[in-house]
Design a protein around this nucleic acid. Structure first.
Lengths: 210, 210
DNA sequence: CAACCCAATTCATTATTATCAAAAAAATAC
DNA sequence: GTATTTTTTTGATAATAATGAATTGGGTTG
């Protein structure tokens, strides 16, 4: 499981066995049960995470309603804004499933960078990729209709639909659970009408893109 | 004017006179007239920019309509996704005003980093700040209503309303120019009704936050 | 100064989504 | 396996923004 981290890094640079050992020695693996809150609004994030197994959700609490803003799964890093800025967090982080994560703190990260300086290049590259992803996400969100966003999510992260409650996907898409439910009915309903076949939610996409 | 660049960098790290000289020697300053297209959809961005004077707009062309996604002004860097990924650009970059910019290419950047290695730290820091900004922007866009987004923009970047046509601000806010016009009337109209005073668009905000 | 162009506003109508409330379905606990 | 939550779906209505089309306003140009 720890090898995932090494795999992740070696997508960017090569590591000597020594460097690999240093990194693995630093790894602090922890397990959290479902519904564990990793970060609360107003709290200060002291750690960031790399998900080895499970799913972590970030959400804002607006007028008592949860608004999901990110869904992280295996092999993704979770770097709370609060962790990066040392300011109080504006949002929550919570485990949607039992999770196994590698944890890093600011001090650990600093030490690791001193021990393996070329990791700086990896960080910069990762940071750049994250930035691109975020900008693209924002552009998509602005330019696509809710339905187009739903289809896009279905295409790019179909796994989410098998593990994340629809209510969270709804707010992640920027709509209400009620609207998402209707939208799904409309879309699959339309397909049924055209084909004459009854499709479940699960095999709809396969049919659509086969 | 070039000093702006040095000022920008020294917010993050100190520079020796030699390093300052190296950086200034690299600076390539260019002027573009209003409406110059710096990057077209489908083209490959070869340069990134630091705005010394003027305003640059990025927009997508969707069904023949321009959808503004970013508005850059003085002391901001413009790093096209296409520049970072070496892929064809999905959007346009255009000068909303006559612009004076410092230009950097991938080769120039690489050379500069070799000459002044500690700039890597600046890059990482900048990258991190940009990431935070983008994530916050996306979260805001998702969680705020169009009207709240308008108010927020009025608060955070009031300068834009003095130099950017409302139609571009509208699509930047994710609404149509028609809706923005109505919204502005509604908001200022409501204030007039409450106060009994006629306020112009320019002094409305001052009154609101005095 | 008049003709023209583009931006902004306004009106009437349509399309979407949100909201409130309730029922059905699914998941979880006992 | 039944009871109890929680999630999802459905219905009726209200709120909001989009659309198509026309008008007004400001600024530019000849």
């Amino acid at each position: 499981m720890e090898n995932r981290i090494i795999q992740y890094i070696t997508r960017y640079i090569d590591l000597t066995p020594e460097e690999t050992a240093i990194i693995n020695a630093q790894n602090q693996i922890k397990t959290f049960t479902k519904d564990t809150i990793l970060l609360r609004e107003g709290a200060f994030a002291k750690e960031c995470y790399f998900i080895l197994k499970g799913c972590i959700r970030s959400f804002y609490l607006v007028d008592g309603e949860e608004r999901t803003t990110a869904l992280y799964t295996e092999n993704q890093g979770v770097h709370p804004v609060s962790y990066l800025t040392n300011e109080a967090s504006a949002y929550y982080l919570s485990c949607l499933e039992d999770c196994v994560v590698a944890i890093s703190t600011a001090e650990m990260g600093k030490k690791l960078l001193e021990a393996v300086p070329k990791l700086q290049r990896v960080l910069l590259q990762m940071s750049s990729e994250l930035l691109i992803q975020n900008r693209t996400d924002l552009d998509h969100f602005k330019n696509l209709s809710p339905e187009e966003r739903y289809i896009h999510l279905l295409e790019t992260r179909p796994d989410l639909f098998k593990r994340v409650p629809l209510q969270h996907i709804a707010t992640y898409l920027g709509i209400t659970p009620v609207s998402l439910s209707r939208m799904r009915k409309r879309i699959t309903g339309g397909y049924k009408a055209n084909s004459g076949y009854l499709l479940t939610k699960d095999n709809f996409l396969e049919k659509l893109y086969q």
